[in-house]
């Protein structure tokens, strides 16, 4: 136990307003869903302890406002991120189309050292609505986009029903860890992430 080091992993959740960023974060951290979350103003974050191998990490998950108008605030929050989660609503084409903007915006504002290899994870949320009947973005289309952007891991979730949320965040945490490890080369005893339990989710190549 005492040998375990704590490390902070910073994760940013981005996506259009109302796609379910706050709901996803709360479902993952607090295991609950509420219809009464308010629209996010400014930014907030929740933390969660995660364990890989014999190491404990603090996952710091940043939830920002989705409305474009507030994006000039981003720079204050994006800096130092280890992973960026792009969320869209499978029932809204616009929210999917905007993923590209969110991604580029993030890369500009966070200016990570290696933008080509910065870890993103894409989440298509609200798959529960209408039993999937009102969905307008197909999984195929989403995966194609993810593949075109350097094989971004992709998850389909329901924050409401708690479907696939845990899996998505495990992948997010691992990717964050991986990017953190790459930067912290001075840490010799890096753990072998590849060997830890694989999430059931599709598409996570970590």
């Amino acid at each position: 136990m005492p040998s375990r080091r704590r490390t902070l992993l910073k994760v940013i959740i981005l996506g259009d307003s109302g796609v379910g960023k706050t709901s996803l974060m709360n479902q993952y951290v607090n295991k609950k869903f509420s219809n009464q979350y308010k629209a996010t103003i400014g930014a907030d974050f929740l933390t969660k302890e995660v364990q890989f191998e014999d190491r404990l990490f603090t996952l710091q998950i940043w939830d920002t406002a989705g409305q474009e108008r507030f994006q000039s605030l981003g720079v204050a929050f994006y800096r130092g991120a280890d992973c960026c989660v792009l969320v869209y609503d499978v029932n809204s084409m616009k929210s999917f189309d905007n993923l590209n903007n969110w991604r580029e915006e993030f890369l500009i504002q966070a200016s990570p050292s290696d933008p080509e290899n910065f870890p993103f994870v894409v989440i298509g949320n609200k798959i529960d609505i209408d039993g999937g009947n009102s969905r307008v973005v197909s999984e195929k289309k989403a995966r194609a986009w993810c593949a075109s952007k350097g094989n971004i891991p992709y998850f389909e979730t329901s924050a409401k029903e708690g479907i696939n949320v845990e899996e998505a965040f495990q992948c997010i945490a691992k990717n964050a860890l991986k990017s953190g490890e790459e930067e912290e080369l001075y840490l010799p005893d890096t753990i072998d992430v590849g060997n830890s339990s694989q999430p059931r989710a599709t598409g996570c190549e970590c």
């Binding site: 994006q71 605030l73 720079v75 903007n101 915006e105 504002q109």
Partner: peptide, 15 residues
Amino acid sequence: NLWAALKRTSRHSPY
């Protein structure tokens, strides 16, 4: 123009 403008400003400084 928003996204374009944002990119423009953020390249300098969004704030």
